[in-house]
Design a protein around this nucleic acid. Sequence first.
DNA 1: TTAATTGCTTTATTATTTAAAGTACTTTAA
DNA 2: TTAAAGTACTTTAAATAATAAAGCAATTAA
Lengths: 100, 100
Amino acid sequence: MNSNKLLPLDPVIHSRIRLGILSILASVEEATFNYLKETIGTTDGNLSANLMKLEEAGYVAIKKTFSGRKPKTTCRITKKGLTAFQNYLQNLESYLKFNK
Amino acid sequence: MNSNKLLPLDPVIHSRIRLGILSILASVEEATFNYLKETIGTTDGNLSANLMKLEEAGYVAIKKTFSGRKPKTTCRITKKGLTAFQNYLQNLESYLKFNK
DNA sequence: TTAATTGCTTTATTATTTAAAGTACTTTAA
DNA sequence: TTAAAGTACTTTAAATAATAAAGCAATTAA
């Protein structure tokens, strides 16, 4: 038995949408709103709200520019976000490898 | 790039408490209320409510007996619960191994 | 015998998620 | 050229869920 306590999971990260956002941003340098939406498989409103939550936590940086004449939202993970994400993954292991 | 779509995560399982319950029960044959409570690190009320949710979903079976003269709640994962849990873990990999 | 403890469940508060509607344009087509 | 449809989001409101606090029915200890 390697583990007998489960570690806490950062509630800012432990939501399907936000976990998805961070998983993607941890591997991809930066991503657009639409890329995130399609890859995660969610709605505009849900993604918008969850991005704001991650931004408030300082886990992602959101850049608003224009692509031609259309608004464009680009997101990247911050250093703080990456650290938090890595810590989340580490704690998650206590669940996945319980008793292993 | 191995993956470019994130798979859905069963909402009955994707909660810290319920994920903890299933992680433990998947490895331990059966567990008492208190063992779960201490291992997960939660309160009585929270554990009680989440166990009921898992029971309603048919993911865990709850047995109520007496240990001497005191009530005792013992939980085990059902076949349906194990299948759902394994599926959850498989889908979770699409997050953990994104772009890997 | 009364106070504390155990082993839960129930209720109420707060937070989160989801869906729907709204805003501010841009593009296409009549 | 203007009306309709589309894009790219944000905001609001409703449904769900999580957490904390209070409650209950005993048992055990002082």
